[in-house]
Design a protein around this nucleic acid. Structure first.
Lengths: 342, 342
DNA sequence: GCTGCGGTTGAAATCCGTTTCATAAGCAAC
DNA sequence: GTTGCTTATGAAACGGATTTCAACCGCAGC
């Protein structure tokens, strides 16, 4: 079935394509009778202008590209949701690329987005947040960001010149640890997170600093990074519980690991929060549905997505903007932590 | 910064654009020396062909559009993941639209995808699965499906002529209910699901039929549809538990509601599975991380996504295909159900 | 009757690739 | 030397919109 074009419409209406375009976009006055005639014909053929042709000329696609490491982690759908809500305001739609940990997909997707001429990119990369990320790779991302407006979401690329929207993970971790200290804990462990990722590094730094500031000992043997998965939280918690000398509270790198940790505890007959307190990070939707409900630090994922798009839009409009936008995380106290009773 | 085009490359290489295009796509032999010269120049300017221009001519975008009701429900990211894995094989990338229950967004997104000339659409609609969906709306979707290859994922539009990929929800529910019966339950309730959605209707039908076939009574007062959320499972379970005469097992419309139901039970001091057995539907990743681990019917979400793309691709290639592909769900017995002990 | 102006409209250029058709060059065969 | 064939290349058309520039119409004002 042949696609209807403005030419077909113009021909049937006995006008020029320019006029058709004008009624399509309402960009110049058209006599009412002409307009109606054209509109009727468009209606009749169910005319739908070809966005590719339009983009070609306007150099604008109305598309925002999103690159993220794992759509299966509920944190990201939440960010996406926020981004989409905000994108609606400006009529943007989304191109989604999920790298699923395949780091080399990142460059591939960046290239594809370039070619498709998306209006902007929201980058929630995995690879570039490796502590030992190869400079050439960073260089590549930076180069892309110079061609297309790009916002790094929760990325750590400090001096890249790329605009960033982040939650203050350091401050968030401090919040969580302080909470544990305030309710009387002195023996606190840390579970989860790939140790070569910068998130993990930041959180661990905050964790140790807070303990020291409170005059508490940092027990390296209670610090068990691994990965970000539920399984990881479970196995590391098992390790921790099998120690003769064990902490009365643990801080987890994210909610997934916290949920795994709770599971491990329950399986070993260790009660949460009576015997051990656990705090997570992210506040994924399920955090307040697990048993016990998880005390955690909210990243405000939805808000993060919204802000990122808002900032990206400013960037696209070439407005002067700050280089970094930081959202304050928030401590959500629920049931997985409680006052220590010696 | 001006975009580099094939013309720029051609000019600098002192060849015609046709030749440049030929090395770009390897569509005709080019003298080795010429090819190298052109490639060097492309490299130098980091040339990236404009996909819009290409699509305009080739009538092919390499994009698959996905429309889904709620990206925040872990079932959908899982489907998306599968779709993306499969799409990679054929070099397809994805355009994602999340209707978040706003039914009128569906038509809007369909229109946008039409205009963007996506190669195909994966439709996991909400609205069209309403039992009392307005015929005009269905008509609209059908019309779209005639212009662009479209696959309905888990949709119920029986005689629309649109190709469907579904999990057999009826059979799945039977599996769940039979399991409960086999382990000795005779008093079984049903929780969750918007009653005007077809999924709910199908599952309820299977539920009642299975009970009848086993010679058990169908107690309408134990059937409590509501919505698909965790909260819904929680509140409906509370209602159920407050009855004097209550079931010993419940079948939930999905894992979300099952998780909510477990939560409600635990809060009331009712033990799962000792006092009441619960089975879910979907097998979201968290199903085996909650406590107790959830017995559920797996929809094989990832597989569903993969199959849908596979079928869509056949459709795009105009191959002859079946009108419906049905995936067999699978019962996953974990900890939330167990032998009844009178 | 002529000038000027605002509202409408059309012709043609443009965006950036791909593809067709024709031409040119190089070489073997007669 | 001419014919015939293969391989390499270019000119120009094409896809489907938007936009610029100029022209045209009708009418008020002088």
């Amino acid at each position: 079935m042949k696609q209807i074009t403005v030419y077909d419409i113009a021909k049937e209406a006995k006008v020029s394509v320019a006029t058709v375009s004008r009624v399509l976009n309402d960009t110049a006055p058209v006599r009412a009778s002409t307009r109606e005639k054209i509109e009727a014909i468009m209606q009749k053929y169910q005319f739908q202008p070809n966005a590719n042709a339009r983009s070609l000329l306007k150099k604008e696609t109305g598309i925002i590209g999103i690159i993220l490491p794992d759509i299966t982690n509920p944190f990201f759908p939440e960010v996406f949701s926020g981004a989409e809500q905000e994108g609606r305001e400006s009529g943007h739609t989304f191109f989604l690329c999920n790298t699923t940990g395949l780091h080399d997909k990142e460059s591939e997707f960046l290239t594809i987005m370039q070619e498709k001429r998306v209006d902007g990119i929201l980058f929630m990369g995995g690879r570039i947040n490796l502590k030992d990320c190869h400079p050439a790779l960073i260089q590549e991302v930076v180069e892309h960001s110079q061609k297309i407006p790009m916002v790094l979401v929760n990325g750590n690329l400090k001096d890249s010149g790329i605009t960033r929207v982040v939650t203050d993970e350091y401050a968030g971790t401090v919040l969580g640890v302080k909470h544990l200290i305030e309710i009387g804990h002195t023996k606190i462990g840390f579970i989860g997170g790939e140790s070569h990722m910068s998130t993990t590094a930041v959180k661990l730094r905050a964790f140790k600093k807070t303990l020291k500031d409170a005059g508490l000992a940092v027990r390296e043997d209670w610090i068990l990074p691994d990965s970000f998965s539920v399984e990881s939280g479970r196995t590391q918690m098992e390790v921790l519980l099998n120690r003769k000398d064990r902490p009365t509270a643990v801080c987890c790198v994210n909610d997934f690991t916290a949920i795994g940790a709770i599971k491990a505890a329950v399986e070993q007959g260790v009660r949460v929060p009576e015997d051990i307190s656990i705090v997570g990070f992210d506040d994924i939707p399920l955090a307040h549905h697990v048993i016990p409900e998880l005390t955690t630090v909210s990243q405000q994922a939805n808000q993060l997505g919204r802000t990122a798009v808002k900032v990206l839009r400013e960037l696209m409009n070439k407005e002067k903007i700050k280089k970094i936008y930081s959202l304050e995380p928030e401590l959500i106290v629920r049931q997985s932590t409680r006052l220590i009773i010696e």
